[in-house]
């Protein structure tokens, strides 16, 4: 963040602290979403350092928070004005800046090595199964016999459930998995974890997005023909 005039450090850190918590934001003029007031949560703002008018900090926030707007608003509260100078995403869901991070150059090299040597080991170190993206979601594991019905878009019923994460509430987004740990679909829970455990019939989650192609698991349901 670049301040428009010099401000003492203790004043900057105090104002940054105040921005933690829920925040109202109207998307900026140049944005790809509808420009209506919305709320986003700032989980934390960690101040690192400042030198003259340049301030470096790290923000933990909800998806859809405009950091450009946050910097502008911090500037307004300070009274001096400010703008965002530079921005880097250090985390998104389960993905962080660790050894999994690859550059385009790395990718290009890994791919050509795979083509030349036919050894896929290195490529697999950096290309993760799609299930990696679902790591933080609550999960439901289902029977082999349930999988293909879900792949055809059916909703998940209680008898198909083998295990699940506790604490799922009605309306939560959940990821449905096979026993082998393959992602089948993204769904919306229509009942809580506690209820699912007790149910012997009835739907427990509505399928929102199918991830697995049809036909990998056998079709086990009866059709009218």
């Amino acid at each position: 963040m670049k301040l428009h005039s010099e401000v003492p450090e203790d004043k900057v850190t105090k104002v940054l602290d105040e921005f933690q918590g829920p925040l109202y934001q109207r998307p900026p003029v140049r944005s790809s979403v509808k420009r209506q007031l919305r709320t986003r949560t700032i989980y934390y703002i960690d101040f690192f350092e400042m030198e003259e008018r340049n301030v470096l900090f790290k923000v933990g926030c909800e998806a859809g928070t405009y950091i450009r707007k946050l910097c502008y608003d911090v500037g307004e509260v300070l009274g001096c004005g400010a703008h965002m100078q530079e921005l880097r995403r250090t985390r998104v869901g389960p993905f962080v800046e660790d050894e999994s991070l690859v550059t385009l150059h790395d990718l290009s090299y890994l791919f050509s090595q795979w083509q030349e040597t036919k050894d896929e080991g290195m490529l697999r170190k950096f290309v993760y199964p799609m299930e990696k993206a679902l790591e933080l979601m609550p999960k439901i594991h289902v029977r082999d016999s349930t999988v293909d019905a879900l792949c055809h878009g059916a909703h998940l019923a209680a008898p198909g459930v083998l295990s699940l994460d506790s604490g799922i509430r009605i309306g939560d987004a959940v990821a449905v998995f096979t026993q082998k740990g393959e992602a089948v679909a993204l769904s919306k829970a229509t009942v809580s974890s506690a209820s699912i455990l007790k149910m012997d019939h009835g739907f427990v989650a509505k399928t929102q997005r199918v991830l697995m192609p049809r036909g990998i698991y056998p079709k086990m349901w009866r059709s009218s023909q």
């Binding site: 999960k139 999988v147 083998l162 994460d165 506790s166 026993q179 740990g181 393959e182 992602a183």
Partner: peptide, 20 residues
């Protein structure tokens, strides 16, 4: 999160693969 088990069943190795 913690996983709770509702029922047990073996998976048939003929269908699908572990992600890795």
């Amino acid at each position: 999160r913690s996983l709770v088990v509702k029922a047990e069943e073996e998976t048939n190795p003929r269908f699908g693969h572990k992600p890795e």
